[in-house]
Nucleic acid binder design. Structure first.
Lengths: 329, 329
DNA sequence: ATGAAAGCGCTAACAC
DNA sequence: GTGTTAGCGCTTTCAT
């Protein structure tokens, strides 16, 4: 591959001038510019980005963490982030934590090693004080997760309100015994949802039982399992807020198989508004989340920080959610 | 951040010695090694990978192209690739082509710019001669796509056999009028499937009609649409090979909605064995593909090429597939 | 408007 | 075993 020196030599100019042309700097005569451009074309020259990035001390890369790529919610988040990043000339490396603390810390090492310019955490496995320590190596922001005090930008939606909205919908459908599902108990986002659930019950003078609350639920198979737990209960809820379309689909599938009518015997509400909602019978009522926008916003913010235009500070951005009513409630 | 020079100065050694310790070279006295390790620890020093990679002329990054991330098949492929790459100390950047030729060529520019060390194409949008030109900048290999003559490693499975197996299953279930779906007509992989379909019909003395063959089918919504096309046919197929679980799910969903019995009125077979097969009613018969292994193999191969241990040549690797019989056939 | 020269942080060929 | 030295390809002062 030719280098900038060869172009310079060929054109009888200094490499400074070639560099100026490459970077669209002013103060290069049209004459020289044209000559250089011609040489670049003829030699099929491209700047070596490895060298350029080294010199500029920038990787033009951002890291995105997700628990697992093959989860529809995160696949969409990745899509949003990748698309926006690309249009801003950034590359994205996706890092799966598999819900593991250590793996998340390894991701943050990328920042320390100058392998990425910034990190978007789409999931949060460690306590914040383990993570904040890495802020001195580059910007980090939270997307789709929440922390009560971290001094960084947090991009998400109102988890409390979304859960409240869903549970109120169930109540308005006449349900008085409503269950609740979540994934990881240490997620503050999940805790906010639970508060929304409890607040809705309280506002309508309803009560819950602890045995109606189920944790560690992530996918369809978990939904299969939780249905059987519900079925075996002496005092069963008549409706359930699942917090996850996959879990909702799993519950519905097993419910039908076991002779339940949905929504009559068990109403189910999902979360995320994934395509699966439209394909399950009955179709699934759910909460729509603007996932793509979540990713876009995160990219725009992290680039702002990388460029140094803004200094890091606490900044909560909440995008709107909406209830999508279908057949399962 | 401290540099290698500071460590060297602190320890009264040359940076060469520090570098040797960093890279686990032999011939460093235990005494100096310990002293250097201690200094590294105290100063919280990490090598600057931007500099190291520049020096070594390696990015330690591979690119993976997929049509779209939020497609379950590709999400799993990404998962397989990422996981394997990580364990080999490579980063992965995922690139979505959105089935666009130009976007694919932009991805290959990464290779030219030295932004990645190698490329795994999980989809193929351009003619091969447009792509082969980039081989001089680094290794490229095909995963899940096929080309009749490209002189590179191609990792996939026997598309012909998989389709043949699926169609024979339908025939054995008593069907004589069998339809076929595909996504893009220019994909050689898809063409091989079609040949498998035709061969199966031929071996059992059956015929097809051109109106039973449907193209440009990718997702659930496309499945919705194709069902209506089938329904409106005067002479309808009684079974359909969809080549895609999402499409199968869409067809089934609409079929049920329109009073069809599945599989009695219309048998449907999917492809990929995604989780969706287990959640749709009836559950979907499909072809299982070892997607994760596909990704792993691709990574191992590309790293072999990057390391220069092997020179590029035509090499077809086909992993085994299997029929998973469920309720939709 | 242009060029000379320094240097980013690291590795490796070579000498001792 | 260890150090000296050159240099990867580029950008960026600074001088002219």
């Amino acid at each position: 591959m030719p280098t900038i020196d060869e172009i310079a030599r060929l054109c009888n100019v200094s490499k400074t001038t070639v560099s100026r042309v490459l970077n669209n700097h002013p103060y290069v005569s049209k004459e020289k510019r044209d000559m250089i451009l011609k040489a670049i074309n003829e030699l099929d020259y491209t700047p070596n980005y490895l060298a350029r990035n080294f010199r500029r001390n920038k990787t033009q890369t951002i890291a995105l963490s997700v628990p697992s790529i093959d989860h529809p919610f995160f696949a969409q988040l990745i899509k949003g982030v990748s698309h926006e990043a690309l249009s801003k000339n950034y590359k994205v490396i996706v890092f799966q934590t598999f819900y593991d603390k250590q793996t998340e810390l390894e991701l943050l090492e990328l920042l320390k090693h100058k392998e990425v310019d910034g990190v978007i955490l789409g999931t949060l496995e460690n306590d914040w004080d383990k993570i904040s320590h890495f802020l001195r190596y580059g910007p980090i922001l939270l997307c789709n997760e929440y922390h009560h005090s971290a001094d960084i930008t947090i991009i998400g939606y109102d988890e409390f309100e979304a859960a409240y909205m869903g549970v109120v919908h169930l109540i308005e459908r006449g349900h008085e015994k409503i269950g609740f599902c979540f994934d990881t108990p240490y997620s503050e986002a999940q805790c906010q949802r639970k508060e929304g659930y409890l607040k809705a019950l309280q506002d309508y003078n309803l009560h819950h039982r602890n045995e109606w609350i189920f944790g560690e639920l992530f996918n369809i198979e978990d939904g299969f399992r939780v249905f059987h737990k519900i079925k075996d209960l002496k005092d069963r809820p008549s409706a359930i807020f699942t917090g996850n379309d996959q879990v909702a689909a799993g519950i519905i599938k097993q419910a039908i198989k076991n002779g339940f009518h949905v929504p009559e015997d068990l109403a189910v509400i999902g979360f995320d508004n994934q395509l699966i909602c439209q394909v399950v019978t009955p179709t699934i009522t759910t909460i729509d989340i603007p996932i793509i926008e979540l990713g876009q916003q995160a990219v725009l913010k992290i680039i702002e920080y990388i460029s140094g235009n803004t200094s890091l500070n606490r900044n909560i951005i909440k995008l709107p959610t909406s209830l999508i009513i279908r057949e399962s409630t």
